[in-house]
Amino acid sequence: MDTPLTTEEAAALARRTGLHRVDKAGEFSAYLRDCWRLRHFTGNYAISRTIVDTVQNRLGLFWQLLNPLFLSGIYYFAFGFILGTSKDSPDFLVFLVSGVFTWQLFASVMQSGSLVLATTKDLTESLLFPRILLPIAVALQETLSALGSALVLYPIALLYGMRPTWAWLLLPFTFLLTSLFGFGVSLFTARWVEKIYDLRQFVPLILRAMMFVSGVFYDVTVRFHKAPHLVRTLANFNPASILLKLTRAVFIPGQLPAPHELIFIGVITATLIICGTVAFWRSERGHG
């Protein structure tokens, strides 16, 4: 047993022998390299979660399809039929169904991503890996299953009497952008929910509130037309409603968001993901 070193001696000895600090997160670039090195774990974890979900439900992934279709039916009746939002768009059925699928994707990525750190403590407390891989895996899982079920939008549009256009091929990309935005938001909410577990109760509430103001079952530009300028601007710059418009534009060209709205959604998504990743890196190993 050696006589204890002073902190200065220990640091000098460590530098001389090429040791590195274990108790501190490394450089940001090393963090990103670690994430890349463990990409197979991320993919495997996403698949494992999908299997668990599928095993628990008899109809498995089929629910990914049934759930939005069923919701679309309810919304069509409640909003389109009773409250008369169906006159917002000449193609209201396609308008509604594509909106619901997009919203469900965003909501599931954000919801599962927000809870993932708080619900996988046994994992994060026993293994050392960049914890950002967990929300990444969740986003991957939700996106892949949503993309599969979103294919049903094509037969629906065909049955409705629409003719296929080249724009239809862009559907996976609008879904990808939606998912990236949800992922960017979850990078922040996940750490908050982990710290203050009560916040998980707010996630579904916030999502519900967002759903009602984002125009899932009505057209924001139509309904906020007469609203005060500030309200109208806020409604138009709501990232969720831009994403809804973008998916709808695949089938309904008139829905295409304005260029400045597209730039806005791109910038805000990139900012959320970059800042969120840096925040994750900074918070790393502060837990437990």
């Binding site: 040791l19 590195h20 274990v22 437990g288």
Partner: peptide, 12 residues
């Protein structure tokens, strides 16, 4: 490396 010490450091 699973937890940060309040004070002190680990080199390895």
């Amino acid at each position: 490396g699973l937890q940060r010490p309040t004070r002190g450091s680990v080199w390895a």
